[in-house]
C-alpha cells in the first residue's frame, strides 16, 4: 500500500482530489506543509476528507499544523504525527508518492 503525501492546500490545488481518485482503499494520506489546511473542519473540502477517512488512514504533520495555528480545528480522527512519526510512516507503507 502507498503513503500519499499532500503538501499544497487542497483549497487551491487539485492534487488531493486526483490523489483520492487513484488511491486504493487502505492506503495512507499524510498532509504536510500547506497540505495541512486539508485536514481541517469547516472548510469546503472537509466533507471530501471525512469521506476518504472511511476507507483510508489520514495523518497530518503536527509541527506544520501548529506552525499555522490551526491545531484547534483538525478533523477528529486525523492522526497527528511528528517528524519521527513521519519517518515511521514511510517505513510502514510500501512506497511513498509525493503529490505536488
Amino acid at each position: 500500500m502507498l503513503l500519499h503525501t499532500i503538501n499544497k492546500s487542497p483549497l487551491v490545488n487539485n492534487a488531493l482530489s486526483t490523489c483520492l481518485r487513484m488511491a486504493k482503499d487502505g492506503s495512507g494520506i499524510l498532509f504536510i506543509e500547506d497540505g495541512v489546511y486539508g485536514a481541517l473542519t469547516g472548510t469546503e473540502i472537509t466533507a471530501v476528507v471525512e469521506k476518504a477517512m472511511k476507507t483510508k488512514k489520514v495523518y497530518a504533520l503536527e509541527p506544520d499544523v501548529k506552525a499555522r495555528g490551526v491545531q484547534d480545528r483538525v478533523i477528529k480522527g486525523v492522526q497527528l504525527v511528528d517528524y519521527s512519526g513521519f519517518v515511521d510512516l514511510t517505513t510502514e507503507y510500501d512506497k511513498v508518492e509525493s503529490w505536488l
Binding site: 500500500m1 502507498l2 481518485r21 487513484m22 488511491a23 486504493k24 510500501d94 512506497k95 511513498v96 508518492e97 509525493s98 503529490w99 505536488l100
Partner: peptide, 12 residues
Amino acid sequence: GDLMENQDVILS
C-alpha cells in the same frame, strides 16, 4: 491506482 501499487519507485 492499481498500476501505482505495482511499482518499485514512484516519482511525481
